[in-house]
C-alpha cells in the first residue's frame, strides 16, 4: 500500500460520521462493545466536562459507548470524586492487577485499562482537552465500526484559520516534526503518513491492544505505531481529522524529556526488529542546564522507558477474557 493510496482511503474527517443513528445500528449489528478510557492525573478542572459530554451525547442520547472509565494514576486533587459524581466508572491504576505491581506513567493506565474494561474497542481520550466534544470519541471509533480491516485509528488535528492558496503544510507538534517524523522517514517511511503520530487520542480493537507491549512513559504512542505496523501493516491504520484540540502547551524543556523517552523506545524497537546492529548500552539520564548565580549547573532527569508485556502474557487476563 503506498502512502498516497493510504492517505486517500484511510484518512477521515469526523464530520463524515455525523449520522449517529446509522453508526449505532452498524455497531449493534456487529455486537460490538465500546469502552471509553480517560487516563488521569490531577485533572479535576476538565474531567467533569469530558464525562458529562460523552455520557450525554454518546450514552444517553445515542447508545454508542457501553462504558466510560477513568483510570487514575493517584491524583491528589478531586479528580476521582468529580469523575465519579458525573457517572464515570473510576479506577485507581494501582488497584488493577495488583499482582503485577504498580508503575507510574500514562502508558501504565492505558495498559491496565485493557484488563479492566469490557469493550471490543477501547478509545483513549486525554483528560486535558479544553474544547471537548463527542467527535473525540465517535470520530475515532467510527472507522473501526465501518471498516473491519482497520484496527487502530489515530487522531489528528488540522484546522487552518485562513489560507489563501491551494497548498499549505500540515503536520504535528514540535516533537513530531523534529524527532519522530525524521526517524520514521529513515526507518519506517510509510508511517510518516500518520500526520500526528504522538496524538493521545486513538481507538483500537482489543485483539490488537492485548497483543502489543506498552511502554509506560513517553514512548507508548511511538511503540504502538511501530508494533502495529510490523504485525499488521499500514492497512491496519486509520486516522481521523478532529479539527482542533485546545490544551495546555508544554515548555520546550518538557518536550526535551519527552523526546528522550521516545528515542529510548524507538532505538529499542529498531534493535528488536533487527534494523540496526547491536546498540551500546544506553544512558538513561537526560541532562539539561540552567544558570544559577552566574554559574551553569546541570539538571539530571532519570528517564527509563519501562515496558509492560502484551496483556496476553498475563495469566489473569487470559482467564478473564479467553
Amino acid at each position: 500500500m503506498n502512502i498516497d493510496q493510504w492517505l486517500r482511503e484511510n484518512t477521515f474527517h469526523y464530520s463524515s460520521f455525523w449520522d449517529f443513528r446509522h453508526l449505532v445500528e452498524a455497531k449493534e449489528a456487529q455486537g460490538l462493545k465500546i469502552s471509553l478510557c480517560i487516563p488521569t492525573l490531577n485533572e479535576e478542572r476538565t474531567i467533569g466536562k469530558e464525562i458529562v459530554i460523552f455520557r450525554s451525547e454518546l450514552m444517553s442520547r445515542y447508545p454508542f459507548l457501553d462504558e466510560i472509565a477513568v483510570i487514575d494514576s493517584g491524583s491528589t486533587d478531586n479528580t476521582r470524586e468529580v469523575a465519579a459524581s458525573f457517572g464515570a466508572d473510576v479506577y485507581l491504576a494501582e488497584d488493577i492487577l495488583p499482582e503485577v505491581g504498580s508503575k507510574r506513567g500514562k502508558g501504565e493506565n492505558l495498559w491496565k485499562a485493557i484488563y479492566q474494561l469490557q469493550g471490543d474497542i477501547i478509545v483513549y481520550v486525554d483528560a486535558d482537552i479544553k474544547n471537548i466534544h463527542p467527535r473525540f470519541a465517535y470520530g475515532l471509533v467510527a472507522p473501526l465500526v465501518y471498516r473491519p480491516e482497520i484496527k487502530y485509528v489515530k487522531a489528528f488535528y488540522d484546522r487552518p484559520l485562513a489560507f489563501s492558496q491551494g497548498i499549505r503544510p500540515s503536520g504535528g507538534g514540535r516533537v513530531t516534526e523534529i524527532l519522530v517524523r525524521p526517524l520514521f522517514s529513515l526507518f519506517f517511511p510509510e508511517l510518516t503518513a500518520i500526520i500526528q503520530p504522538l496524538s493521545g487520542e486513538y481507538a483500537v480493537r482489543r485483539d490488537v491492544l492485548e497483543a502489543i507491549p506498552f511502554p509506560i512513559g513517553y514512548g507508548v504512542e511511538t511503540s504502538h505505531l511501530i508494533d502495529v505496523y510490523s504485525k499488521w501493516g499500514m492497512q491496519a491504520f486509520g486516522q481521523t481529522d478532529l479539527d482542533q484540540r485546545v490544551h495546555r502547551n508544554q515548555a520546550t524543556r518538557d518536550l526535551g524529556k519527552m523526546s528522550f523517552g521516545i528515542l529510548q523506545t524507538f532505538l529499542n524497537r529498531t534493535k528488536a526488529l533487527g534494523l540496526v546492529p547491536e546498540l551500546p548500552e544506553l544512558n538513561n539520564i537526560m541532562r539539561q542546564f540552567q544558570v544559577k548565580d552566574g554559574h551553569f549547573e546541570q539538571i539530571e532527569h532519570h528517564i527509563v522507558e519501562e515496558e509492560r508485556p502484551p496483556m496476553l502474557d498475563i495469566e489473569a487476563y487470559r482467564q478473564k477474557f479467553k
Binding site: V52, I53, R55, S56, E57, S60, R61, F86, G87, N131
Partner: peptide, 15 residues
C-alpha cells in the same frame, strides 16, 4: 435523571 444531558447542553451552548 437528565442531569448529564442538561449539563452537556449548558457546556456546549456556553462554549
Amino acid at each position: 435523571s437528565m442531569r448529564d444531558i442538561l449539563l452537556a447542553n449548558v457546556v456546549m451552548i456556553g462554549e
